[in-house]
């Protein structure tokens, strides 16, 4: 990637490059527009009740307070909700990765009977509105005495087909020659997957992990229906109770809970993000 001249420079041949300048201006504008809601969320969350509605809006409270956060952690089992969410997200993500890597291989590389049908059925579930699955799933879980367990919250989410689709597309981009070389060395299919496909799929695996983890972390309706004690309740469900429904809208409380729910997912994303664009970039979405 070494360049003989610096492409990001504002100057070219000694004079100001107006095109560049405009691009920088747009870039800064975009960053402000997308960043402001986060900042506003945080600033509001540390405002005491009597400062929230101050007009014109202030970008820093006179008396910043962490009251809403301390209440969240002291009066509510916030750590238990965090732990539950984490357990659920880890189960879902692990299960998704293992099953998708395994299933993605034959779908990408093998010719077998029923391949088209299987793909078609799996992909068509992208269209399924989740709402109609809720009640049958709930009744099934209760029937097998699984309601209110981590199993019931975490496992159904691993049936989502998005990760499988991504893995399949990614595996298709791995050069056939590598696989054939491996086969000449006497590798079994499982060996090929383990020694060739998985090591080359870091970015795709990271991408599926991020998508799955974030979706699981933010899932609301299913955990709400299936779990009803603090022993299994996840962060979004717990926070819905903390926030409350009703007319007494308190934006400080709302913003503190939104921030508290968001931060772990942000951290998870930032840790994995350097793999992220690469993961999508090589999944061969261009067909």
């Amino acid at each position: 990637m070494s360049q003989s001249w610096r492409k990001d420079s504002l100057y070219r041949d000694g004079s100001l490059n107006w095109g560049r300048l405009t691009l920088y201006a747009i870039l800064i504008f975009v960053a402000i527009v997308w960043g402001t809601p986060f900042i506003w969320m945080f600033v509001t969350s540390i405002k005491p009740d009597n400062e929230v509605f101050r007009y014109p809006p202030t970008w820093w409270p006179n008396e910043p307070t962490l009251l809403f956060y301390t209440r969240l952690f002291e009066s509510f089992p916030m750590m238990a909700w965090f732990r539950n969410s984490l357990i659920v997200a880890v189960i879902t993500t692990t299960l998704t990765l293992v099953t998708n890597v395994l299933a993605g291989y034959p779908l990408a590389r093998m010719r077998f009977r029923g391949r088209t049908i299987v793909l078609l059925i799996i992909l068509s579930t992208f269209l399924l509105p989740g709402e109609i699955l809720l009640v049958p799933l709930f009744l099934g879980m209760v029937k097998f005495k699984l309601a209110n367990t981590f199993f019931s919250i975490a496992v159904p989410a691993a049936a989502n087909a998005f990760g499988l689709f991504l893995m399949t597309q990614f595996f298709r981009t791995i050069p056939v020659e590598l696989e054939e070389a491996g086969r000449l060395d006497g590798c079994s299919r499982l060996g090929l997957l383990w020694r060739i496909f998985i090591p080359l799929s870091g970015p795709a695996i990271a991408t599926v992990a991020i998508f799955t983890f974030v979706r699981s972390w933010n899932d609301f309706f299913w955990p709400l229906v299936i779990s009803n004690t603090d022993a299994t309740r996840t962060v979004p469900v717990g926070l819905a109770i903390f926030v409350g429904a009703g007319l007494s809208i308190r934006f400080g409380v709302l913003m503190a809970s939104a921030a508290a729910a968001t931060i772990p997912a942000v951290i998870f994303f930032l840790m994995l993000q350097r793999y992220f664009v690469r993961g999508i970039s090589t999944t061969g979405l261009r067909g």
């Binding site: 809601p37 972390w217 926070l239 809970s257």
Partner: peptide, 26 residues
């Protein structure tokens, strides 16, 4: 090829990890 584009990328991508409930109330 702009300086700070990685930061801009991350900022624009960040809302993706926010739950719909949080987005809605914010």
């Amino acid at each position: 090829k702009l300086r700070g584009r990685n930061i801009a990328r991350a900022i624009v991508f960040l809302p993706h990890v926010v739950s719909v409930a949080a987005v809605g109330i914010v």
